[in-house]
């Protein structure tokens, strides 16, 4: 839930990057951290394992600066993607305002994508929110893979019921990263 602090003139929203293991959630945040202007940048925190897999979450606060007298800030988080961390993902989703679901475009990852998306829907509903109305954007990542699943099939398997906005991405090169972030940020603001 966004916090609007009138005394300190601040508005803060929480956006979570969700998806199966190794789909590129942390890569998205690292690229954003590298590319946003210094004025908007803050320290990025990663709680990960020795092999640099996310253990708890990555956290990156982004300052939009002052808008209409209000300091506006987005807090970006990732969840750990590995299956065994389901309860940790629930913990990170606490109080979320919007979700970027990052899907892996490789054919052997399609089942993981579907399972992860189902789990996300369940977790949002468990927070008492309607998943269909919840601010969500899909990012089809790793579109540069030679065996990437065609876009129509990605949409068929992941988005045919949701009809959420989707973006193609190659997060390791930054392709589609800011388009996704722009869209979810605006969607979250529109729902405040």
């Amino acid at each position: 839930m966004a916090i609007i602090n009138v005394a300190q003139r601040e508005i803060r929203c929480k956006i979570v990057y969700y998806g199966p293991g190794l789909c590129g959630k942390t890569t998205n945040l690292k690229y954003i951290h590298r590319m946003v202007p210094e004025s908007a940048k803050n320290k990025m925190i990663s709680i990960d394992t020795e092999t640099e897999r996310t253990l708890f979450f990555d956290f990156l606060p982004i300052d939009l600066g002052t808008v209409h007298g209000f300091q506006t800030r987005f807090h970006l988080y990732t969840v750990p993607g590995q299956v065994l961390y389901e309860r940790t993902r629930v913990a990170v989703l606490t109080g979320v305002d919007g979700v970027v679901f990052v899907a892996d475009s490789q054919p052997n990852k399609m089942r993981d994508n579907i399972e992860s998306l189902k789990e996300l829907a369940r977790n949002i509903q468990n927070e008492g929110k309607k998943f269909k109305d919840f601010p969500l954007v899909l990012q089809y990542n790793k579109r540069d893979m030679p065996n990437a699943v065609p876009l129509e099939q990605m949409n068929y398997y992941l988005n045919s019921q949701l009809n959420a906005r989707s973006f193609e991405a190659v997060a390791s090169r930054g392709v589609g990263v800011f388009d996704t972030l722009k869209y979810i940020s605006k969607l979250v603001i529109s729902k405040l």
């Binding site: 609007i4 009138v6 954003i32 590319m35 946003v36 202007p37 908007a40 982004i62 939009l64 600066g65 808008v67 209409h68 209000f70 506006t72 930054g174 800011f178 972030l181 722009k182 940020s185 605006k186 603001i189 529109s190 405040l192």
Partner: peptide, 24 residues
């Protein structure tokens, strides 16, 4: 009762700022 703070012009200004900052 939040309409006094989150006005339409506020949302538009935030969107403009997002376009300005979130780019490669």
């Amino acid at each position: 009762a939040k309409d006094q703070i989150i006005s339409t012009s506020f949302r538009t200004s935030v969107e403009d700022t997002i376009d300005l900052l979130f780019k490669d």
